[in-house]
Amino acid sequence: MIERRPLGALLAHFILIVGIVIVAFPIYYTFVASTLTTQQIMAPPMPLVPGGHFIENYGGAFAGVATIGGVGVDRLLLNTLVVALAIACGKIVISILSAFAIVFFSFPGRMFFFWMIFITLMLPVEVRILPTYQVIVDLGLIDTYTGLTLPLMASATATFLFRQFFLTIPDELVEAARIDGAGPMRFFRDILLPLSYTNIAALFVILFIYGWTQYLWPLLITNDNNMNTIIIGLRKMISFVDADTQWNLIMAITILAMLPPIAVVVFMQRWFVKGLVETEK
């Protein structure tokens, strides 16, 4: 029996609404700014209702980024999409294969290698930035998609999560697959991979956003404006003098930059939640 508490429900909904307003207001404010002129944005107080320059600003956003070495926002979005997809897919492929080898293969030093992978959680890109950058330079990967994505593909967190899930696979299922004549890769493809779909979906959402919002590594590894990501492009559009900054175009491009990760979260929300909360497959 569920006890109904109107006051508690009302308080919970009030807190939820306040939380939504706090999170959503900066995004709404950015959208409003993207429909105004720069003069309206710079003249306080800025209006809280959308202006009449929506088509002008969003249409000009694609041409306005020409101030960044002649590179359009479509190219910047394409670069960011390639980087985000490559990082997310690369991390998942490497992590799931690593976890598969650690859990289902017996070889000397298996746990040692696992803990070596796990310890790398304490060594983020910022800590190993100099040696990683030197390796990329020596390999001639500056201003390439490979240089942008390859150093960010390894993921100890994803490997650990896949390992923990694989440990829940019953031994009877492994024995049944072996009796049926399934080799390691067939067992992985026909049994483990379908069981891991929700985990993969949840990790893909997290890793896609991680790749989309990268700033430090793309800033270091790109010299050519054609290889910039949308985050770097936005930063280059901001001048030290407010009067020289086209804030209306920057706000419009900011909204455009937020749409792909939002779309990924919205369309994969059901799989994302299942991958986080389901413990039994």
Rank of each mutant, 00 (worst) to 15 (best):
I22M: 07
K91S: 15
R110P: 11
L249V: 15
I87F: 02
F62Q: 08
M116V: 12
L249C: 09
N223F: 05
F105E: 10
S155M: 03
F272I: 11
P45Y: 04
I17N: 01
L139Y: 12
D171S: 11
M153A: 07
S106I: 12
D224P: 05
A263T: 13
N226P: 01
A61E: 09
M185G: 01
L77A: 08
A176C: 03
I119L: 14
T279G: 15
R75I: 15
P261D: 06
A243D: 11
A263G: 13
S34F: 12
R235D: 09
L11P: 11
A63W: 08
L123E: 02
N199C: 06
A86K: 00
Y215R: 01
F204S: 10
I17S: 06
L10Q: 07
Q269W: 04
I230W: 02
P151K: 00
I206G: 06
G70A: 07
L81D: 00
Q269I: 05
T144D: 05
L121P: 04
A158N: 11
A158K: 00
E56S: 13
T157F: 15
L167R: 14
A66Q: 12
I94H: 00
K281D: 04
R178W: 06
I15C: 12
I200R: 05
F107H: 05
E175K: 09
A156Y: 08
M116G: 13
K274F: 02
T157P: 00
L195Q: 11
R178V: 14
G69H: 11
S34W: 07
I209A: 09
V273D: 08
N57G: 10
M111W: 10
F188L: 08
Y28L: 14
Y210S: 13
R4F: 10
P218Q: 01
A33P: 08
A9Y: 06
L16E: 00
V125F: 11
T30K: 07
D224I: 03
P151N: 01
L203N: 03
A156P: 14
I119H: 00
K91W: 01
N228A: 03
T213G: 15
R178D: 09
L256K: 09
V137E: 06
F104E: 13
